[in-house]
């Protein structure tokens, strides 16, 4: 009797609970569709959507902050110091340009869309733009070269920069050597401690020069304030 009772009870429950579920499904028949037919209809993206990185190279001051913030190291930037004879166009905010951005490459296919670069950019140069439909068969297809300089001009500027840097380094080394010599002359009368070779100082001088070439511009923060 007990088994018979269980049998019919299971039957009853099976039928009723399934019909309850069917009723839910049936009710949903009369609701509006939530999906869209993609290529014909497109959804709008919110303003904060992180889709594709775009660089407005005119407003880039070459501070390298985005390149340093990137966790996957896909932003490659090279800058050259502006010389008096160059006469480049001013920054959009009217300040004189201090660095030529001769290389601004973004490997979009490696991007993890974290947004750290766009947040740190003080001029709003690198930003997201709603271009989510860009696809490519090869990795090169998503390579972005934003620098506005033609290739031969880039080479010329870089070569010139190398020459200037080498000259500076040479001068610094010479100055250091002269200093050393003077110090050595003075210490001839006294028992010399140990002659310091000029080689040791020259790399220091060089590195200082390199740093000078890369230092972020001082008006960075001012720009940010003005934008805000």
């Amino acid at each position: 009797m007990n088994h018979l009772h269980k049998y019919f009870r299971d039957l009853y429950l099976g039928v009723t609970t399934i019909s309850i579920g069917m009723a839910v499904t049936f009710r949903h028949l009369f609701t509006r569709a939530v999906t869209v037919q993609y290529p014909h209809e497109k959804l709008t993206y919110p303003p904060r959507a992180r889709t594709m990185l775009v660089t407005d190279i005119d407003s880039c001051n070459g501070c390298l902050q985005c390149s340093r913030a990137c966790p996957v190291e896909i932003i490659h930037i090279q800058t050259v110091k502006v010389q008096p004879e160059d006469n480049p166009p001013d920054m959009p905010d009217g300040k004189p340009r201090k660095l030529h951005v001769v290389q601004f490459d973004v490997e979009m296919s490696k991007c993890i869309h974290c947004g750290l670069c766009t947040e740190i950019c003080s001029t709003g140069s690198i930003h997201w733009e709603n271009q989510h439909e860009e696809v490519s068969y090869a990795r090169d297809g998503l390579f972005r070269d934003w620098s506005s300089y033609p290739l031969d001009e880039r080479k010329r500027l870089l070569d010139r920069d190398a020459v200037i840097k080498a000259e500076k380094a040479k001068k610094a080394a010479e100055a250091a050597a002269a200093k050393e010599a003077a110090a050595a002359k003075e210490s001839v009368e006294k028992p010399a401690p140990k002659p310091v070779e000029s080689k040791e100082t020259s790399p220091k001088a060089e590195s200082k020069v390199n740093k000078e070439g890369e230092t972020p511009q001082p008006p960075v923060t001012e720009n940010g304030k003005e934008d805000a």
Binding site: P46, R48, R50, I112, H113, L116, E119, W128
Partner: peptide, 21 residues
Amino acid sequence: LEELSGARMLFNYIRIGGLAK
């Protein structure tokens, strides 16, 4: 969450010392 952070799954919204936006 997308409207808040800009992404649908990989938000990167909670940051050290606060929130992204």
